[in-house]
Amino acid sequence: MSLTAQSAAKAGGTAPSVKTLKNLVRGDRPYVLYAAFAVLIVAFSFASPVFFSSSNFLNIGRQTALVTIIAVGMTFVIIAGEIDLSVASTLALSGMSAALAIQQSGGNWALGAAAGLATGALVGLVNGLLTTLLAIPSFLVTLGMLGIARGIALMLTGTTPVVVNSLTFWDSFGEGAILGVPAPIVITIVVIALGAYVLHFSTFGRRVFATGGNATAARYSGINTRRTKTLAFVITGALAGLAGLILTARAHAARPDIAAGLELDVIAAVILGGTSLFGGRGAILGTVLGSLMIGVLNNGLTLMGVSSQAQLVVKGAIIIAAVAFSRRK
């Protein structure tokens, strides 16, 4: 009672202009993450002469694009109080359906792109409906979907990759560039901007925060929490589909066994970015930083010549440390 009132007074206020900016990067306490991020960049710059260069930064951007794109969707799902473990399988299934659609239609790349996105959205819809209508925890629903989507992807061709022969498709999602910026990075930036807009400036975004913050209070305020959660899953599924298109375009083929385990990097990026695993708080920009930080770690450690086995250990330890420091008391 009185204690909480006083701690509010203690917290004090900040100028409104700073606050607007802060809304974008709001999370539990992402400042620690910014500091850690800066320290990493400085440290790697000293440790490796190749690290601090525009070509290497583009490299990092390309490497993190997939994780960042899916993590934007995952931010919605986690803020709404749910989780999606099936994204890597969804990515693979979407890539396969895109590649098959292009192959069957004789090189219609737009049809392939639509098929990939639709497949991802459909998987998300199923996840969302099972979670909200049957009230099964999303952890279990998506754990099941992780197997189902991967299994279907493998069964489509009997585990054989599907080659894509469409120059436009390769360029649009993989190898093209605008003003020297590779297509995957351009797509990532667009996704980040749209995601930040929808989460932080739209009515739907408000519903997502309220649903994860207190589902009962949201429901009592007339918010359709089932629809809100389902939509969050659909967004994530569609973005996993988009990531599937990028991976397929880059490799000129879709492989059904691709990206296994990617969901862990995605969830790590979101949580590292200050989004609460319990829902109700988080930010897109935090997620982007979280994803970049994982990318910088991978890249920097490789440049320093650290073995991939040791990299796993270092990465894991840094993720735990960063989250431990940014925890609210």
Partner: peptide, 23 residues
Amino acid sequence: GQGLVMDDSIERNIALPRLKPLT
């Protein structure tokens, strides 16, 4: 449990039941 999203601001809570007219 039912009335408020405790971690959200006064403004966000007050706006909650009638988001549509504000959109």
